[in-house]
Each structure stands twice: as C-alpha cells, then as structure tokens.
Amino acid sequence: MGRQMRAAAVAALLTGAMVLGGCQTTRYYERARLVDRAMDFDGGSGLVYIRNKIEAAREGGFGGFGASAAGGCGCQ
C-alpha cells in the first residue's frame, strides 16, 4: 500500500513539474492580486499553529493540508 502510493505521489509531482515547471504563467505586473494578504493559504502562522494542534490531536490523520507531520507533542 505505502510503497505504491508513495511512488504514485512522486510520479505525479515530477510529471506535473515537467509539464508546468518550464512555463511562466504571469508577469510581475500581473501579480497584484496574488500577493494580497488574502492569498496567504493559511491566514498566518499563529492560526496554523493552533489549528494544527487541535486537528492533529483530534484526528487519527495528520490534520491540516500539508504541514510537516512529524509531530512531537504527546499532549492532547
């Protein structure tokens, strides 16, 4: 299970990178909307911290969407 899923994930990432990695999709003057604070994926590190604490502790999965899941806190 784990080996196949890992291989599939790596293949998907590499394929995508090859397809899109060479294409510049915006010019710097087109990025005003992209650099707005609202485009921050997580709304700031303070919110990320507490949401990871709550969701990672209350779910058997990792919680969150891509933060490192090595854990380290054995509290609730």
């Binding site: 890992r6 990178a17 899109l20 915006t26 087109e30 990025r31 891509g66 490192s68 090595a70």
Partner: peptide
C-alpha cells in the same frame, strides 16, 4: 516525516498547491 510539495501559479487569478507526505 518527508513532505514533497509543488506549488504552481496557474494565472494571475489561480494558484494550485499539491503535496504528499509520508
């Protein structure tokens, strides 16, 4: 923990991020 991430600006309006972790 190993996390692989790919983030792509698709256009001046769209951003996509994919990641996988083990």
């Amino acid at each position: 923990n190993l996390l692989l991430g790919w983030t792509q600006v698709l256009s001046p309006s769209w951003v996509l991020a994919l990641s996988a972790q083990v």
